[in-house]
Nucleic acid binder design. Sequence first.
DNA 1: TCCTAAGCGAGACGGTACGTCTTGTCTTCCA
DNA 2: TGGAAGACAAGACGTACCGTCTCGCTTAGGA
Lengths: 205, 205, 205, 205
Amino acid sequence: MPQARTNKAAEPNGDAGKPVDRRVQRTREGLHHALFDLILEKRYDKITVQDIIDRANVGRSTFYAHFLDKEDLLENLLRQLGEQLHDETVRTTPPADDHIVHSLTFFVHAHANRDFYRAMLSGGGGDLLLDTGRKHFTEALRQHLDQRVEEGAVLKIPTPVVAQYLAGAMMSVLTWWLAQDMPYPPEEIDDMYQALALPSIEALT
Amino acid sequence: MPQARTNKAAEPNGDAGKPVDRRVQRTREGLHHALFDLILEKRYDKITVQDIIDRANVGRSTFYAHFLDKEDLLENLLRQLGEQLHDETVRTTPPADDHIVHSLTFFVHAHANRDFYRAMLSGGGGDLLLDTGRKHFTEALRQHLDQRVEEGAVLKIPTPVVAQYLAGAMMSVLTWWLAQDMPYPPEEIDDMYQALALPSIEALT
Amino acid sequence: MPQARTNKAAEPNGDAGKPVDRRVQRTREGLHHALFDLILEKRYDKITVQDIIDRANVGRSTFYAHFLDKEDLLENLLRQLGEQLHDETVRTTPPADDHIVHSLTFFVHAHANRDFYRAMLSGGGGDLLLDTGRKHFTEALRQHLDQRVEEGAVLKIPTPVVAQYLAGAMMSVLTWWLAQDMPYPPEEIDDMYQALALPSIEALT
Amino acid sequence: MPQARTNKAAEPNGDAGKPVDRRVQRTREGLHHALFDLILEKRYDKITVQDIIDRANVGRSTFYAHFLDKEDLLENLLRQLGEQLHDETVRTTPPADDHIVHSLTFFVHAHANRDFYRAMLSGGGGDLLLDTGRKHFTEALRQHLDQRVEEGAVLKIPTPVVAQYLAGAMMSVLTWWLAQDMPYPPEEIDDMYQALALPSIEALT
DNA sequence: TCCTAAGCGAGACGGTACGTCTTGTCTTCCA
DNA sequence: TGGAAGACAAGACGTACCGTCTCGCTTAGGA
């Protein structure tokens, strides 16, 4: 019976609760790095736990003390990357933006980490990556739309359907763009996405 | 080295070359059935080749004589379902249709086979199902759009991007709809999809 | 849950029941040999299942398909050696023998297989070897003594105690003799054993 | 490289050199107790170091600061019990005794500590117990026999062989007696042992 | 009485072996 | 004699212990 584990990096916020052995932090980061590097080298679904712990110079039991399995580690890694992405989004947002959602940031982030993204999408781990991305995106859209509803707008189509529609379209375009070796710069592909998405949204009310 | 195998269902049409041992056909169908049933019972990615051959009352080597692996069998099974879907599409199409593609058929088919679809999407085999669906859909869209280009229309956005966008949106909505236990009848969810897709297409020219 | 397994070499006797794949027999013998060889090379309790299967060129699961664990394999091996010993005992017995039990055969057998015996006794697997030996010996003694009782003899001490006493003494002398690098030929050490054992037996009635 | 450790209980005699933190003594005793108790509860070879330190409320490193491993701890424990046995032997010896060695004390001691003995013998730790016992016994016999030789006796059989023979027989009878749930009182089983051993010794000269 | 070195609990860690599981190949037997 | 049954090699999995180690806390014993 795989018992629940912490799976939490030490909260970076002020000095709180647990002291958290510095070793723990180092071990977790080492495993993150090891997986990240390995993904760039071989298909995700061919990577074994043994590969990871060899790379990270970590004992087998240590791995299982921190993560439930390879996938759990990946989720953690993705969460971290997601937070990094989110920080960028928030920090770099131009105040006035006629785009419904920060889709550009996605494309830029994918472009910057193209090797990793491509490796994930073609190596069998794409599901998790896309699901994570879709979830973020859907959430952002939902908030945007709900806000408009609160402002009095009346939508012909339920919010979740719209959010799901636009997020799925986004992920699909992103995937295709990466698989084609990014034949357009991030800004251009984003323009296309927005050009397709905006009419749908405008037609909502 | 996994050598190439037949991987072809025996052509059912009378004329063709091979006589095709009736036993072969029976074996293949037995395996199809076994996998289909098992998918309804347990997560796809927890189903083992052993499970399948036990269910089908077939020896291990027999399985590998017909299919490369579990996934190959699934592809075969999906192809069969796809053909069934295609037949329905073609047969039932109303001649004049303001919808760009036969999205309704997808929803209807998913509704009819909801248990199977849901099992696939939540059991780890969703990728293959969605990819197959997306491929069909993308292809239909591409043909539709190319035809319009040939008729002289000038599109602001490259055809493949549009096709990918709309297909991805479709799959995403379909997935959400199934995961939510189909809160709308197929016709209604399809209307929503079309309501979102049409403005984008009209804005293309 | 480790389920019960066959643990039976195919009966060599005429044509009976199971056909028994020849491979099975070969695998079992290969594992026997591998363990036997390894025992001569390193302490028994430092031998791992991995060592054994590497040596025998056998897959891990194959090992566990045939034996419960390392100890189970050893038991099988010892049983085989025991049968070999028993055959010798029966075959070579001089019809008239003033010795109470065939102790000489033990010493001779140990002498012939001295490397194996010594390795077992010093390598942590002595228990099993001695228990097997003691069991054989005790049984032989019990039969001898019971027969005398049936012939009308009256013993001052219960048969099992006597059998246990003499068998334990035997194993102890055997162990010591081997540990000392057999400072006497088998016949001589056996004479000593008999010289010590006979007075006890004669005093019984 | 496991370095040598003290492995010595603090000399109880007052004057000696080192002051020896009282905590040390307490810790060692706690571990002894913990192991002793655990042996009565579960098979010796299923007891882990973790079990022991949990029971003793001791840190892992503390355990290894005092003992090399589980077996080392057991040896210590047995040595302690052995000294207790030896004290009894010496203290309670009747001045004149026609028995060659104090075999009775063994039986009595085993009877008094029957639970512990039985647990050891059936739990995989019997070897160490019996070896310790056999060593004590052999030594006592050797002294007895050597003394007789010095008195001019001529033995037909080398002393070590005889000692080994009688000690092994003793341990074997003891083991059997315990395994049978002690069907005779200690005095009776000892009488049997002596009745079997004495004729052998008398026949020596 | 204070101070300091030691003993200690707690437990993270690298390692190793275990017994289980699944895969895709290969051999044997049987119809 | 061709195909089904299933034995097999390979190797990853998650678990269980081991013996080492690094932390701070507590505490005895010499100053």
